[in-house]
Amino acid sequence: MTTQMQTLHPSISSRLGWQRVCALKSLEVERGRAALVGSAQIALFLLADGTIRATCNRDPYCDAYVLSRGIVGSRGDVPTLSSPMHKQVFDLRTGTCLDTRGKEPARLRTWQARAVDGQVQLLWGSAS
């Protein structure tokens, strides 16, 4: 009764690859930048320790594409972003909302990002 779940759609898979977005020097520590990848709006953040984080630029609480303009900070060891619109606070690593300001839980899409040879790259998927 459960095996059918495992065998449906064996053909569906995603192709993932590192996609160049911009030069590393275009980013500033703790001041986000928006990027367009395909038709997606991404928010990129360079943290003080050199890590790069990437989330969607859309704030799920207001539907505006503003998150790259939020304040980067920390909660304990967690790197955080607070939305410039209504100050919800998100975990930059996972997109989880840490402070919903009384709203329903919501979360941000996140992507893996890295810097290679002075270039910022995103792990980007496309349906095969």
Partner: peptide, 17 residues
């Protein structure tokens, strides 16, 4: 002024939303 680019890789493209 660079901080006023809409997108780091498309500086003059308006927010399509």
């Amino acid at each position: 002024l660079r901080r006023f680019h809409s997108f780091v890789n498309a500086p003059a493209t308006g927010d399509p939303s």
